[in-house]
Design a protein around this nucleic acid. Structure first.
Lengths: 202, 202
DNA sequence: TCATTAATCAACATGAAGTTTATTTTAGGA
DNA sequence: TCCTAAAATAAACTTCATGTTGATTAATGA
């Protein structure tokens, strides 16, 4: 394992390994891949892999951590007040647009990881991210412990999973809408009931 | 591979292999398991495994198919009219109760498969099931191609994923509510907007 | 130019996969 | 109860990926 210097050879090698991982995951899914597959695709010696990563799980983990880091950085720009103030149904929350731009930029990674050949523990990680950085900001609104239609934690599970589903579907469809359009759908579905969203009642 | 007779030895062996698979998946997740692990846990010879299944993927697939078969059987009892007629906010759709009873009965399987150590392609299969057996029954309601708040397919993706999220969360929490209670939450969240569900607006 | 270190290459031990053959055990009908 | 067919066991074997090691070659940057 190398002391991650800024030696251009190391940077280049690690980048090639991560690219190869993504390409192979798109084809076969993570578990069907071998270290040999990865290094072959990257055009590197198998031994070189072990100079940088303990095994393929380590490689995936490091790659994932990079992506989560990017998400956390965007999450810092989120102010729940924006959302509370937001009353205009024809414009999305700006923060949501930024998120989708990031998903689009790293579409291959998110598409694979959140797809049928991906890693279910990544979906959990992603949900935790939404819980901590988005949902928990609204905890102050539910001091009403008494008779609510649905328990708070189940409502959170519902919303988080619903939002994840939109991200997955968007990526699956090859990003047939702009980040702005998808963000607008988010905004609307959160404000309306499913029946209203379908346009069945006003 | 055996012609699946009704030889009690075969039935017993296959049952033990499936039980062992589930127990090991709970501990380590599917991919970390070896055929040797499975047969050891089941107290069987490794060679015996290959008399019935091609590999561990085959075993998982057959087990999964059994579960989906059970779901399809329940889905046959679903009548969309029940749902349209249903106006009482304090009772769940009976069909939904039956579904959750089934999840509860096979909690170990669904809990593992839909959890962080599970198989993401099973979640996809499960979503397809909901799409075909539940959502598609309502296609007749969206002839309005024009200006709707959210495209129909994205609304479906949102709802299906949201419902999956509830199932996952319920199993994750160790089934802290009865099937009846969960089914009622379903009913309410479908009828109300997220904000109403939280009890913030009426 | 030269010392450092990354990358390559070849070899090795380990362990799981999947197959095969022979042997033992079990089920169920005559 | 006995007998036959088939299931389960046991042991051996090939193949392949893993992770490691030591020697060699190539690239970096001072």
């Amino acid at each position: 394992m190398s002391e991650n210097a800024n030696d251009p050879r190391i940077v280049r090698t690690m980048h090639m390994l991560r690219e190869a991982l993504l390409e192979l995951m798109e084809e076969h899914g993570f578990e069907r891949i071998t270290v040999k597959d990865i290094t072959s695709k990257a055009g590197l010696n198998r031994g070189t892999f072990y100079l940088h990563y303990a095994d393929k799980y380590d490689l995936l983990e490091k790659t994932t951590e990079d992506m989560m880091q990017g998400l956390r950085k965007i999450a810092q720009t989120f102010d729940p007040l924006d959302l509370v103030m937001h009353e205009f149904p024809d414009t999305p929350f700006p923060f949501t647009v930024r998120l989708f731009e990031y998903f689009g930029k790293h579409a291959r990674f998110f598409s694979v990881m959140l797809g049928p050949k991906g890693d279910p523990s990544f979906s959990v990680k992603f949900k935790e991210f939404m819980q901590v950085h988005l949902m928990d900001k609204f905890n102050e609104f539910h001091h009403s412990e008494d008779r609510v239609p649905v328990p708070w934690d189940y409502l959170m599970a519902y919303l988080i999973s619903a939002h994840l589903g939109i991200v997955q579907y968007w990526l699956e469809q090859g990003r047939d809408h702009t980040p702005w359009d998808i963000a607008l759908m988010f905004t609307r579905m959160t404000q309306l009931s499913p029946i209203q969203s379908a346009g069945l009642k006003k």
